[in-house]
Simulated assay, not measured.
Amino acid sequence: MNLTETAGLVGVPIGVVGAVIATLAWRTSAGTRRDQAAAEATRRHREMRPDLAVAIDLRHGPDSGVLAVKLVGPREVERYDWIRVTVRDDKERPPPRTGSGVTLEAQQRQVWGPFWFRPGIEGGSEDHRSAEQGGKAVTDTWLFAIDRVLAPHWYSGGGAAWREDYKGAPMRLRIEVGLGDQSWVELLEIEQPRRSAYEDGGVTVA
């Protein structure tokens, strides 16, 4: 209680003063409980964050393969409800130049990176941009079909230039995993395996 509040109680019956003090104490206690509950919820959310091991498997060749997302942990959670993986573009781009023949919508639809998802397979979306699947238990692995991104027809230098530009570039991902009304997001860059990796039988997610 501050000095202003104390001054305002001068001449007020003791019972009323006691009631005011009790009310202020209750409000303080309620606020403390809310803070403690919020801190506990934050701690639990942090402890329940999924631990992921992610790799690209190109055992069948350099142009198509599997994105493997293994649910390594944590020990506090047995199973998660869903996963959504989205390809992030390699960088932000300014709007197309006027007269280039390229629309802003076409530029934004294009996936700018080495790989995209195969539509209709293992949860892949029609625009190649994302894939979503149901739940998995800890130690299980989600598998997503991926292919090399095709260059848009207006890309300078065509498909050959595109492949050269993205040779060795990482696959940039946004991975969201959900459980009940909670979800966790990871932003990752997954390196492409070396050519010898798929020639030798692919990449194993440990």
Rank of each mutant, 00 (worst) to 15 (best):
N2V: 09
L3P: 12
E5Q: 06
V10W: 05
V10H: 04
V10A: 13
I14C: 05
T23Q: 10
T23P: 09
L24W: 14
W26Q: 09
W26Y: 12
T28S: 12
G31H: 10
D35L: 13
A38N: 09
T42G: 11
R44L: 15
H45Y: 12
H45E: 13
P50H: 12
D51S: 09
D51L: 15
L52S: 00
V54I: 01
L58I: 05
H60W: 15
G61Q: 02
P62C: 05
D63M: 06
D63Y: 11
L71T: 00
L71H: 00
V72A: 12
R75M: 05
E76P: 03
V77E: 03
V77K: 06
E78G: 15
D81N: 05
W82H: 14
R88F: 04
D90C: 06
R97D: 14
T98K: 14
S100R: 07
T103D: 10
T103H: 02
L104D: 10
Q107L: 11
R109P: 03
Q110E: 12
V111N: 00
V111H: 03
W116Y: 14
I121P: 10
I121F: 14
E122K: 11
E122L: 07
S125H: 03
S125F: 06
E126Y: 07
H128E: 15
S130L: 08
Q133W: 04
G135K: 01
K136I: 01
L143G: 07
F144W: 02
I146W: 02
I146T: 06
R148P: 01
V149G: 05
H153A: 14
Y155G: 03
S156N: 14
S156V: 15
A161V: 03
E164Y: 02
Y166V: 08
M171R: 07
L179I: 01
G180Y: 01
G180E: 03
D181H: 09
W184K: 04
E186Q: 15
E186D: 10
E186T: 15
E189K: 05
I190M: 02
R194F: 12
R195T: 14
A197E: 10
V203Q: 14
T204H: 11
V205Q: 04
